[in-house]
Amino acid sequence: METKYAITVDDLTVAYNYKPVLWDIDLAIPEGVLMCIVGPNGAGKSTLIKSILGIIKPIAGTVSIFGKPYEKQRSLVAYVPQKGSVDWDFPTTALDVVMMGTYGSLGWIKRPRQKQKKAALEALEKVGMLPFKNRQISQLSGGQQQRIFLARALVQNASIYFMDEPFQGVDATTEKAIINILKELRKAGKTVVVVHHDLQTVPEYFDWVTFLNVKKIATGPVKDIFNDDNLTKTYGINYKVSVQE
């Protein structure tokens, strides 16, 4: 059986002003992998995810999800934005934010009901945030806010998950908890794409990796391509065994 690709990106080029921040990106991500995108600050990792999700309009290129244009497949895709992208002083509760994950399937105008609430509570439970469900979101710690965002994506019950730095500012315990949830998603056959900064943990957490720095440097199984050569090409400095320990 030939490999089924969850996400394919062809010739994607993106520029904010005049300078391209992504250049001719080609990607084919197989279904069911737990993949990380690595690259230095400003490499365009967030931009890549946002262009795949249609938040940013690319100059050129196409994106397809399970072989169809993204616009037709939205319901299969969930997104965890970088935590700093919203104002956490917004007047709402943790449960309410998680409920927002159900808005997509509800569509216009229809209000969430008992069924949606139940799903949201289950997601909160999964990320260990149930006791905080009525907390005002500004009164949550950074790691807790991160888990709320994760729960909101889980509620979407998607086939593909994009997460922008879900481990940013979380402690070791929370990191383990989150990675376990991601591994569970993979076990359930979902595809998970994560922007990740801690190179040390790549081999332990992920089975697929994409090196990015404006251009795509490499993409493939961690065990085949996660090596000094690609790291050096991506980060510019010489990477020696440091990460292979």
Binding site: K50, I55, R74, Y79, P81, M100
Partner: peptide, 9 residues
């Protein structure tokens, strides 16, 4: 609360 996320939905 989150315009970009709203778009993805």
């Amino acid at each position: 609360f989150d315009p970009e996320y709203t778009k993805t939905l």
